[in-house]
Structure formats: structure tokens, C-alpha cells
Design a protein around this nucleic acid. Sequence first.
DNA 1: CTTGACAAAATCGTATACGATTATACAATT
DNA 2: AATTGTATAATCGTATACGATTTTGTCAAG
Lengths: 227, 227
Amino acid sequence: MTLEQLFATAQFRNASTPELVAHALREAILGGLYAPGQPLRQDTIAAALGLSKIPVREALRRLEAEGLVVLHPNRGAVVAPLVPQEAQEIAEIRIALETLALRLALPHLAPRDLRVATGILDDLDAENDVTRWGALNRDFHQTLYTPANRPQLLALISAQHRRFDRYMRVVLASMRHQVDSQAEHRALLEACRAGDEATAIAILERHIATAAALLAEHVRSDPTVVF
Amino acid sequence: MTLEQLFATAQFRNASTPELVAHALREAILGGLYAPGQPLRQDTIAAALGLSKIPVREALRRLEAEGLVVLHPNRGAVVAPLVPQEAQEIAEIRIALETLALRLALPHLAPRDLRVATGILDDLDAENDVTRWGALNRDFHQTLYTPANRPQLLALISAQHRRFDRYMRVVLASMRHQVDSQAEHRALLEACRAGDEATAIAILERHIATAAALLAEHVRSDPTVVF
DNA sequence: CTTGACAAAATCGTATACGATTATACAATT
DNA sequence: AATTGTATAATCGTATACGATTTTGTCAAG
């Protein structure tokens, strides 16, 4: 999937050009099309999309705020580098935000939500592509949190989840974590179905903490891994 | 304080022009110089700062990501309107993030941090200006969280705290909430000094929840208040 | 071989200009 | 009076152009 294709694919209603560019770059970074630390040349991107630098620059500002891009004055933008220490911090943040969201959502979880979540888990089982696996994983979590009816909270969670997935991508490329992760997903879904808040929250906490620990383990076992 | 003055005052190292513009606009919005919903004309701002629209547009994108500005495609930017329901959500988010930060910071709180925090509380007692009161209030909280050594978390808290303060500003303008708030601040500081995590966390939770409740009460008592 | 100086190239940052879109005023119509 | 249509003004969005800054390449000195 090239940047041009991502740009052409992205069409929301009411989306401005810089938003579309931001979307394309976001997907490109999450999909691994651009490596961490890689420079994002304004002219190159603009030319690829048939635009001038100006909407591209605005998109980069947006992505900077999301933590996917780092801007260096007069030296341009680079894909935000991966610093495992940062992933540990994001995991802590995710636990705080997602347990809140799940607690608020649980009383409003409808059978339909559970069905949708189950369907995503089945898709996850069948999915081998790491990028789409990350997207489906985020979808699963969002499905459980959406009934909380907290748009600000959900947006924050999405942003943090996306950043975290950039690290998990590296881990998943070498380990086969899916199985364990799916077992946790199903246990979480079961606790939600049963309306067992304490258990659901505990599973969610462990689920995120486990992913972070796996990442730490991966770094420890092979310190040469370039993140 | 005019926008020009805020722009001239703002000088960080390594700050690009759009960042300086964003800083000035941020302070202007927080300081009430621009009312909620007010249009932010690119030409006007650019002319006032002696710039073209381009760096101004980039600053607006940044502020959009922070939730202080809303961009409408082809219709420009407005100061983000105040929707009390949103403040309630932000309070929930703040409780989740700030109790985490406080828990992580407590074991590393040094006497120096406590002295600094005490000094800020004294300044708060003497401060009458609502805007500077908000800034000092944020400083007090940040001082307690900084030893957690979690830059991402602190940045998130700052952004949410700033958004919340826009609502509190309206409440403080009509009520005299400072006294109660200061009592809570001192009780929190005392629990931190004693290293009593459970009490400190409980006070912090109530502190934020009380502010949110005060806001809700304010809306209930006078539904005509234009936020 | 390394270092420093300098020129050339690449890239950034933004002022300017202009087409596109939206808002406003006001006349025409129902 | 309300509504529709149209001309005008205000504003947005961005392509272009160009100065400023940084990076790269080259070569001479140590």
C-alpha cells in the first residue's frame, strides 16, 4: 500500500486536505511503510500526492501532536523513533484510561456490542498481516469502550493505543504473541458478557501489562533490536 | 495582555514560529481574551503578529489537537465552545491520569518539591486574577506529579488540565471557590508530606470531583449562563 | 587519516498571489 | 412577511516563488 493509495482511499465527509494527508501518513507510519526515525520530506510527500508543501506541513503538525512524528525546526520531520521506555509509560496510561472506559461502558454493553466484539475476535484469528492485526485489535477494544459514551476519553485511548501498537508490531514480527493475546481477549469478553466488572478490569489490566512486559522481555533478550 | 504582547513574551529555545503563535493563542484563549465560539481570523492574527497566514494556520492545527480550537473546513477556526458535559468527562479523565501520576510520584517526592508546592499555595492565596490563579493551580499539581518522571503522562495531564480550567474560570468568576480549593490543596500536600498514599489519592479524587460538581451546580443554578 | 573551510545542493519556512468557498446585503418574488 | 436569487465582500486554502538554514561534497592543511 503506497502513500498515494492511502491518500486516495481516505475519504471522510467534511475532511479537509490536511486531514486526508494526516490520515495517509498515519496509516503509512502504523503500517511500517515508513521506519522509525525516517525523514519525512515535505517536497517528496507533496509531489507524491499532487499537492504543495502547505497542506503537508499542516498534516505533520497534527501528527506531531499525536506523537507519531517529531518536528525539528529547520530540519524537517521524522517518524517518531521508538524508545521502549516510552512504551512502558504508554502502557501505564492505557491501563488508567481503558479501565476507566471499560468500567463506564460495562453497564451499557448490549448483546449487539458483544456480537460485534466476537466477530472481530474471529477476524483476528484469521488475520496474519501484522498491520491489519493491529487495526482489528484496536477495533476490538474500542467496541468494548464505545458504550461508555465518552468521546474525549475514546479519542485519547485511540491515540495512545496507536502509539503502543508501533512497538507491538516489532515484537509480533518475531514472536507469536497472538495466541495468548487472543486467549486474554476471549476471557475479557466473557467477563464482560457476565457483567463481572472486577474480573473484566483485572483481565484488561493484565492484558495491557502483559503486552508491555513482553516488549520489555524482547528488548532484554535482544538489546540489538533496532526499534 | 494583547496577542502581540503574548507573542513577544513567548520565547523558548528551539521554538519555531508556529509554536510561538500557538503559545500566544493558547494563553489568549486561557486568559479569556478570546471568548468561546469566537472566530479566529487567520488574516487578522497574521497581521497582528506581522506574519503571513501560513504559520498561523499551523498553530491553529496544533491547538485543534489540544482541544482549544475547532476548525471548520472552508469556514475557519473558532475558539472551542464550552459544553459543560465535556468538562465532566475531562474531570473523569483527570482523575484517572492524575491519581496515576501522584501514585508514581509519591515515593520520589523530595523536601524541595514540597517546599516549591508550599510556595505556590502561598502565591495562590495572594492571587486574585483568575487567569494567573489557573496557571498557579496547574503549577501546583504539576509540581506534585513531576517526580513521577513520566513526561508523556505529564503532557497529557497538562493538556486536560488546561481544558478544564476554561470551565472553572467561568465558575470562579461568579463564586468564591478559592478558599475551599486551597483547603483541599493544603490537605493534599499534607498527605503527600506524610507519605500517606491512600489519603493523598482520595483527597485528589475528591478535589477534582468537587470542582466538577461545583461546575455542574453552577449550570443547574443558572442554566442561562453562556459558557 | 583526520580536520577544517568552503562551495554547492538539498531542504526548510513563509510571504505573496490568486482561485475557491462561504457569508452578507439587498432586490425580486411569492 | 417570508423566501429565493444574485451580486458583492470577506475569508479560506494552497500553489508558487524565494530567502534562510542545514546538509553534503570537495579539497587543502595538518
